[in-house]
Structures are given as structure tokens and as C-alpha cells.
Design a protein around this nucleic acid. Sequence first.
DNA 1: CTTGAAGCGGAGCGGCCGCTCCGATTAGTC
DNA 2: GACTAATCGGAGCGGCCGCTCCGCTTCAAG
Lengths: 203, 203
Amino acid sequence: MTLADHATPAPRPGRRADAERNRAAIIEAAGKVFAEHGGGVDVREIARRSGVGMGTLYRHFPTKDELLATVLERQFDGWLTDAHEQAMATEDPWQALDGFFDRLLTNQAGNRAAVESFAATGGPSAACIQRCYSCIDQLRARCADAGVLRPGVTTDDLFQLSGSLSQAVLTTAESHPGQWRRLLRISLDGLSSRNTGPLPPLA
Amino acid sequence: MTLADHATPAPRPGRRADAERNRAAIIEAAGKVFAEHGGGVDVREIARRSGVGMGTLYRHFPTKDELLATVLERQFDGWLTDAHEQAMATEDPWQALDGFFDRLLTNQAGNRAAVESFAATGGPSAACIQRCYSCIDQLRARCADAGVLRPGVTTDDLFQLSGSLSQAVLTTAESHPGQWRRLLRISLDGLSSRNTGPLPPLA
DNA sequence: CTTGAAGCGGAGCGGCCGCTCCGATTAGTC
DNA sequence: GACTAATCGGAGCGGCCGCTCCGCTTCAAG
């Protein structure tokens, strides 16, 4: 995992064993709590759920934002890696793109904090966005080379699409789980090279 | 306007003139402030911007949530009416649908509070959602009758689409304004009857 | 102009929440 | 077991924000 680099402070090996355990507990609990209630939850709730005092929590993460960022980064990075690996293992370029989106969105289904962070900044962090862009661009290029992608579609378009769909994933999570897949199918069909009409120009 | 019914307390005609003026000022200022900063802003900011004291604000709206609801309802209702009228005046069913979405999304472009409310509850209020559903359903039926709409597409699909795109409208508002139109075009192309593949079933 | 009731303003209360501080505890060493 | 430095825990501080309270102002009826 390359993402441990972003943690603050980084998990040094020379640390006491209980400290290491607590740190892990905090990250796990925070992941669940943020996903359930969004980034606005009381930090005390995270401390409670991880069985740790406030002092301990704040020694590991100097700021609530830092904790949120770390957690989000870990989660998103995991989802991204997973979706990317699956896509790489798929031969058909179009199915790879399809599977990538499906996997990525499935993974973050119901995670309030993740969607909020997309809404606020377009993603968990600049580095994360960059990684995501790279993945998407790779898949886009494969599709474009195979001639199955609608001409003029940019990596940015695909990135925005995933962000916008993650909104749908969240709002339909409780009432109509999985309905977002219909939107994904529709969008992907609109992205196929069957559609040759020009897209609105970038301002 | 049927939406004044939702205000609390309703603007009674027998009220003093200055009270009426203040009420209007509050609604207007709140609309701007909520749009700029989202539903989380300090109520004091709204009082300041409308040139009114806290007491006045809270006599007109017993609760911050009530104020937010009223404002959102007014705004959304206006946008919806506007988009609907424009769509009704368009003969071609497909262009009517296209124009409806374009107009609705353009109108709410950059309104943080509006997008938040979509994220939280799917819309400003149950009544508003109902109205929106009706509009969309009407347009959907016209397209379906004309045979230009992909088979199996539900009103719910179209509603979710608009909610998900409003997310894109917000995130691209500052860096790439108007880029969301590309996503809209893509989605609509995926919704045309040219695409006959079955959509994932509703769970 | 007088009068009384409707309306106004903003200081301030109470609760929530991010973060800190320091005495108690415990892991790890000899 | 003794020792010490790293770690822990949670009471509490300070600031933010929703909302209230009440003395002052203004409208409009007579």
C-alpha cells in the first residue's frame, strides 16, 4: 500500500504495540462512522466506537480534517485499486470500462462522507484525483484505440460522470438500491461510438 | 403562485407594510446566502444581508430549517415552472425533454443548498418532488408515444438522472462551467430509442 | 396628534463540538 | 520487580450557532 504515506504521523515501526493497535482501531471506527453519518459527526462518537480516549485520538491525528482525509484516502485508494485491477484483467476494453465504473461505485455505495468529499472538492485529495484520472485515462485510451468510444469524449467527462453517479448511488441507496446501475448503463450507452453527434464544446 | 402555502406564517394581507417588506427581504437574502454557502451558514449572516434583526427573522420563520425549506421550495418551484413551460412550448417531444433538463439544471447551477437538499432527501420537499415527477412523467410519456424514448425507461430513472447531474453542475461550476452539458448530452443519447439493450431490472 | 398594538433589534443563553491538558497508566527494559 | 518514558483518557475550555427575550420603535386607526 502506498497510501500509508499520507497518514499523519506515519505508522513508525518503533512505536509501542498498543499505540499501533489504537491507531488501527481509530481508522477502522472512523471509516464506519464517517460512512454512516457523513463528515459532520462528533469526534467523540469516533472515540467511543474505537474504544479510545480523545487524547489518544488527537495524538494520532492532529485534526479532525486530517483524520477524515486519511480515512477517505485509504478507502478510496482501496476501491480504486480494486476496480482498476479488475478492469486490467478484462480483455474487452469496453467491458473493462463498464466493470471499472460498476466496481468503483459499488464499493463506495452508501458512504456519505465519500460522496460529500466529491461534492466539495471533486475527490478525497489532489493525489487521489490524479490516480483516479490515470486509471480512467488508461481505460479511455484502450476504448478509443479499439474504436468503441464515442469521439470527443475526454477523461474529464468520464471522471465527472463517476462523481455525478456516486450522488445517485447515495440517494437511491435506501429506497431503490442498485437503481443507479440503470443510469450507468444509460450513460455508457451514450458513450459508445454508436453515438457520433458532437458534444457541447468545453468553454 | 401556489407555493406561498408552504410559507410559515403565510403572508397575511392585513399585516403591516414594513413586516411584509422585511419578509420579502429575508427570503431574497436567504436565497442568495444559502445558494452561495449551502445550508450550513450562520443565520446571523442572513439577518445581516437582509438588513433585519434576529428577532424579526425568527418571527417570520420559526426555525432555520423552515426558512431553508421555504426558500428552496420557492426557488425550485420557479425553476420547475420555467423549465416546464419552455418544454410545453416545444413541439418536438425529444427536444422538449432535452430543453427541460437543460433549463432546470441551468437554473439551479451553482446553488449549493439546492444540491445538498437533493443529496439529503432527493429534493426540497415531498410536494415539490411530486410536482417534478409529474412534469417529467408528462415529458416522458410524450417521448414514449412518439417512439423516440428507449424502452423500459421510467420516470424515476429520469428523476434520478436530474439529481445526479445537478451534482455535476455544482462541482464543475467554477473550474469548467457548462461541462455538465456534455454529460447531459451523453445521457440523453443513451436514453434515445436507438439504444434497445435492456436496462438492469429494478431490485 | 394620540394611542396601543404590531413589529423590531440584538445582546445573550444554552448546547454542541473541535481540541487541549495533565494526572494516571502501562509497555518495554534491565 | 523496579523504573521510566511513552501513551492513555476524559474533564473541561473556547468558540460557534440556533434561538429567545424584552425594552424600544413604528405603523396606522380614530
